[in-house]
Amino acid sequence: MDQQYIDKVLAGDRHSFRYFLQKYQDMVFSVAMSIVKNESLAEEVAQDAFVKCYHKLDTFHQQSKFSSWLYRIVVNTAFMRLRKIKIEVLDFQPDYNQELIDEHELTLLEEEERSQLINEALCLLPANESLALRLFYLEEESIKEVSLITGWTDANTRVILHRGRKRMYGILKKLMNKANV
């Protein structure tokens, strides 16, 4: 389906690009948010990434999924933007025991509450870890695809995912404890 629209855009039908905007804007925004942790910055990154994607569409040769190619543009744009404005994302220091997360308590939360808690936790994670978690668990990309999107090695991706998971549980536990006090 994506290829049909790519062909249309390359043939000069600019409006066919709306298809990609409608299909990917939420995920592109989520990926950008994982890195820049700020709504308006993430929106700017998403916009820049889509414009770049439009101009470079002729360089997409189906060596990977279109979504992976697009996310790679988003990741590069987001990290470039971070470097430009010199934002330093604070590293969360884990002082937790990963095994003590209360799964039951998490499942009892209302969907909206759970979503808010998880997104808050993701905001506290380092950019690379929240990015890896979102791509691997939410977008269900393989390790290979995550490596392709981020430019990390497979081994590095595994390490980042492992750290991200541990840290995520720690932050969730801390946030839940704070909410219960």
Binding site: F17, Q22, D26, M27, F50, V51, R114, S115, R165
Partner: peptide, 27 residues
Amino acid sequence: LMKSLMQSSKLKMPFSDFESRVMLTIE
């Protein structure tokens, strides 16, 4: 557990005019 938790992390684009602004920039 992480997989099910992350399903709740999907964000919606909060700016309703995003699509039209991107199309305008492209134009």
